[in-house]
Design a protein around this nucleic acid. Structure first.
Lengths: 111, 111
DNA sequence: TTATTATATAACTTGACAGTTATATAACTC
DNA sequence: GAGTTATATAACTGTCAAGTTATATAATAA
């Protein structure tokens, strides 16, 4: 089983995703656009299929690959606690700054 | 240069991040918690340092590693257009359903 | 049917990286 | 100082995955 992380670690696969995000592409188009060999494209597309990031529509000999972004929600979910972590830190900083500000404007401040 | 994707592809490194997200950990604690060898922990921590995901605070012989989540914002940024893609599809589906609904309740509907 | 077009797969090569063992560094304790 | 504790690094091994070349499959066109 391949994780979403493994699927995304390869830069060529990320380029493929960027491409088909615009519109479905057939294999030949991907090969031309990314200047890679045809077997390599097929191989990468297989990995992307396996994790459900692309789906295929057959049309004669051609195969149109299109993006299926839903599996990326798993990555979103993974990120969530880290986003919270950042926000937490930011909130604490804000509180600290407010406290300093309050201190500077105390009523008994004689400056 | 290591990308954020490369840093995150290794499950052990993700475990380390999950750990130190709770609170800073020293190397020995990570070794114990994840049941990995000490050199391996050091090696992974090095990678995480290189991409800026952890920072270190020295305390005698100990080194406290803490999370620095900011680099993950790069991943967020990468995800953005894909999130938009999903939303777009959802919106179109909604519009379609509304249209079907309107069709079913046309004034000249004789059902 | 034969030739052609489009894609997938098999077999192989190579490089990179996870993990190991052994050793270095460096600070503390006695 | 000598020994101990905590971590980093060097050198090595094995595995796995990216990329290549050659070939298979399968639909179309002639």
């Amino acid at each position: 089983m391949t994780t979403i992380f493994e699927a995304l670690v390869d830069p060529t696969r990320r380029q493929i995703l960027d491409l088909i995000r615009q519109r479905p592409h057939m294999v030949g188009e991907i090969v031309d656009a990314l200047q890679i060999s045809q077997p390599l494209a097929s191989k990468h597309l297989r990995v992307l299929r396996e994790v459900g990031l692309v789906s295929v529509r057959q049309d004669a000999q051609r195969r149109w690959y299109e993006l299926n972004a839903e599996p990326l929600l798993e990555l979103e979910a993974w990120l969530k606690p880290y986003r919270d972590f950042i926000e937490d830190r930011y909130d604490r900083l804000e509180t600290l700054l407010e406290r300093i500000d309050a201190e500077e404007n105390k009523p008994d401040d004689k400056t």
